[in-house]
Computed example of a mutant assay.
Amino acid sequence: MHAYTVEPLYVKSGQEVIAADFYRPKTDVPPGVIIMAHGFACLRQFKLVQFAKRFAQAGYAVVLFDYRYWGGSTGRPRELVSIQEQLSDWRTMLMHVSQRKSINSRKIVLWGISLSAGYALELASENKNIQAVIAQNPFVDGAESAKNFPLNLLPKALKISSQDYMGAKVGLSPRTLAVTDPSGLCFVQTKDAYAGYQSIIHPDYYWSGQVPARVFFNLMRYRPIQNLRKIAVPVLYIASKNDSLIPIESSREAATNIAPYVDYYEWDMAHFDIYHGAWFEKAVAKQLDFLNQHVGVS
């Protein structure tokens, strides 16, 4: 087990500054590095810290970052989810990490969960400087995931999304939707979503639970599954059979598209289970095996 330090890291991305934590294991040679970010509407201090610590203890460097508008990163309006700008932040962090002399730039791994796993897979389809990808419950097909949204609530959600989008054009304050709400209109309407989000939030860090509604329509149109046949690096893909957010059929199709580069696993769990208990331990063990096989610690 390696000792490690955690250092603050600030990287310019467009007009904004991205805040990150750099987990640096104490090794004699520059280690491989894992770039990590959370899924939809979360902060880096939430449940990804437990993964980052385990990777650092195993001898891998980790860069865990907040998207612009979130957490310690700059940008307004706060807690805005912009798919294109978040992808840009990933590209910025990838470029920054590849230029750091303290790590091995030939051993860069992209690590994502839910929406960020969709980003990681999309980036792997366009970038040849990545060693491997770890994707947990990846959001790969917004059109299919949208089918889980209650049909009777869809017109109202789309209306608010359009109003927020048009209002932003003329400088109005955002119209927001709750990320999840057990009794009202929200982004994630599935029965287990409220308890799932509550289980990963860190109470010491501010999280409003509200997101500008303009992203709603863009989430439905986001389909990284269309580009996955371009991936030519090892991918560890972990899917949940009982996932109420990501249809298992989408994961199976995605894995087929990535073959023969994918190690695909379906586990009998729900979307948020992988953060907790035995499922977390199983996931970490599988990921460390994958990393040791394809990246390695010198």
Rank of each mutant, 00 (worst) to 15 (best):
A3E: 15
Y4Q: 05
E7C: 03
Y10E: 14
V11C: 04
S13L: 10
D21S: 08
F22A: 09
F22P: 02
Y23E: 12
P25C: 07
T27V: 12
V29W: 06
P30R: 04
V33H: 02
M36F: 05
C42V: 10
C42S: 12
R44K: 15
V49G: 04
K53C: 04
L64G: 06
V81F: 13
V81S: 10
L87F: 06
D89H: 02
L94Y: 03
M95T: 15
S98W: 01
S102P: 00
I103L: 10
I108K: 11
L123R: 03
N127F: 03
Q131M: 13
A132Y: 06
A132Q: 09
A135T: 09
A135L: 03
N137L: 05
F139C: 09
F139N: 06
A143W: 07
L158G: 00
S162I: 00
Y165W: 07
M166G: 00
V170A: 00
A178M: 13
C186E: 00
C186L: 00
D192K: 09
Y194M: 02
I200F: 06
P203V: 04
Q210E: 14
R214F: 08
V215W: 01
F217D: 07
N218M: 01
L219D: 03
R221C: 03
Y222I: 06
P224R: 12
I225N: 06
L228Y: 09
K230R: 15
I231L: 13
I231D: 06
V233Y: 04
P234R: 11
L236I: 03
Y237F: 15
Y237H: 12
A239S: 15
S240L: 02
K241V: 05
S250R: 11
S250V: 12
A254Y: 01
T256Y: 11
I258T: 07
Y264N: 04
E266N: 10
F272M: 12
A278F: 09
A283G: 02
H294L: 07
V295G: 13
V295M: 08
G296D: 14
V297H: 08
